[in-house]
Design a protein around this nucleic acid. Structure first.
Lengths: 137, 137
DNA sequence: CTTGACACTTACATTTATGTACGTACTTAC
DNA sequence: GTAAGTACGTACATAAATGTAAGTGTCAAG
């Protein structure tokens, strides 16, 4: 009778890590969620889905980001392996940002949510004004 | 001959509102995004996708939420018309939370993102550990 | 008769996110 | 020669999110 353990091959810790569980307070997936759903994280991923952009191009694309937060957000996403930073050693500086394969997958999900919000804003806003009227009654 | 304008019915402002644009700093869709992608907003939507839950049930389901933030988040989502609050007037209090049709749509998108993160956590975390090793080198 | 459950609310403290302003080192345009 | 663009880092300040602890009123369980 074959023992089940015969097929066992030791894997490095990283590959043995099981699926995350966002409902668990201590799960590291909470960090990823934080970065991806951060105020500017969402918009950076979506902006980069159309192609590589430079720092200043990103800043102009995403209305209202400060330089500081854009840099910060890009570092978060780079740290999670979703964004790739490519610095050309020239002067004036030239740095390109693009999505990694992992980032492209994440960006797709994020864009679906963003698209839904943009498209359904009227339905949502309708509720706002209705409730405002109801409060006046 | 029927004039095209005969069919025209003036719509309230809310129904005439066009699609939002998240890249625009002043667009109200930014508020919705903030609520939906807030730390607990994501998890509340996902938790309610499986069915109606009471306040305390939600609190037990979502690891680490404080009562204060759960209440706050539920009010945000209720204000956006994504969550319906049903209070039974009994003592001790009994309040049910469920998704509205709008909320069910939003929750689906959010869950797709959350699922992706949970499933791909190993790939992401691999990058963390690799970079840590690289820093030691 | 003390405790816990329920669904919050409020006051307060703290942590985190975000913004503002300035500096950098060099280049091109005016 | 003066200003602007480039991609940030850093110090400081503020705003926002979140946490903690306590209180509410009633009931049921121990």
């Amino acid at each position: 009778m074959p023992e089940p353990d015969d097929d066992y091959t030791p894997l490095p810790l990283s590959e043995r890590m099981q699926r995350g569980d966002l409902m668990a307070a201590a799960c590291p997936s909470r960090e990823v969620l934080k970065h991806v759903t951060s105020r500017w994280g969402v918009l950076v991923l979506i902006a980069l889905e159309s192609g590589t952009l430079r720092f200043s191009e990103l800043r102009r694309t995403i209305g209202g980001v400060s330089e500081r937060m854009l840099a910060q957000t890009l570092q978060w996403l780079e740290g999670d392996g979703l964004v790739k930073r490519t610095a050309h050693d020239v002067v004036p500086p030239h740095v390109d940002y693009s999505l990694t394969p992992l980032g492209r997958e994440a960006a797709e999900k994020v864009r679906l949510l963003a698209d839904w919000i943009e498209f359904n804003l009227p339905r949502i806003a309708e509720g706002w004004t209705n409730r405002q009227n109801a409060a006046v009654d």
